[in-house]
């Protein structure tokens, strides 16, 4: 099996998405893959822009250092859209990620329902493999 070369991971500042980034950095480091960390700018975010497309948030820079991840293989993207659509777009040009990584959070999530869970929505519509990193994941 061909190993992956380019992971895309969704990041919204939450603990769950931070855990997903941790998993992605560690997994990518082991196979020398590139990591694209993408933040979706939703409708409401226009009222309180949190992230600049030009500046990797310091907490992510900190994680990259913690994992001794080669920063030249780390990309930071801020893109308009809802979290699900934006992550799905990462599987297409120009990013062409060969796997998508997402935290398991879903604030409105109800048992047995897809609605309200970004991770399940992404998994349902994705054209490449999806890794859903549980919030209980601990890096050893």
């Amino acid at each position: 099996m061909k190993t992956f070369r380019n992971l895309a991971v969704g990041y919204d500042g939450s603990l769950d998405s931070t855990i997903a980034v941790r998993w992605a950095l560690r997994a990518a480091r082991e196979v020398d893959a590139t990591v694209t960390i993408v933040h979706a700018t939703g409708l409401l975010e226009h009222l309180r822009a949190r992230y600049s497309p030009d500046v990797l948030p310091p907490e992510l820079l900190g994680l990259a250092k913690e994992y001794a991840f080669d920063e030249s293989r780390l990309r930071w993207l801020v893109t308009n859209g809802d979290a699900c659509s934006v992550l799905l777009r990462m599987a297409c040009a120009p990013v062409n990620a060969d796997a998508l990584v997402v935290g398991s959070r879903g604030e409105g999530k109800r048992d047995g329902l897809l609605l309200g869970s970004t991770s399940l929505e992404v998994a349902e519509h994705a054209t490449v493999p999806v890794v859903v990193v549980p919030s209980t994941y601990v890096d050893h």
Partner: peptide
Amino acid sequence: ELGAFCYAGGGNIDDDTY
């Protein structure tokens, strides 16, 4: 799904949509 989600009390569907 949408009907069931609402009747279960609703919540946030995504960061923007409730």
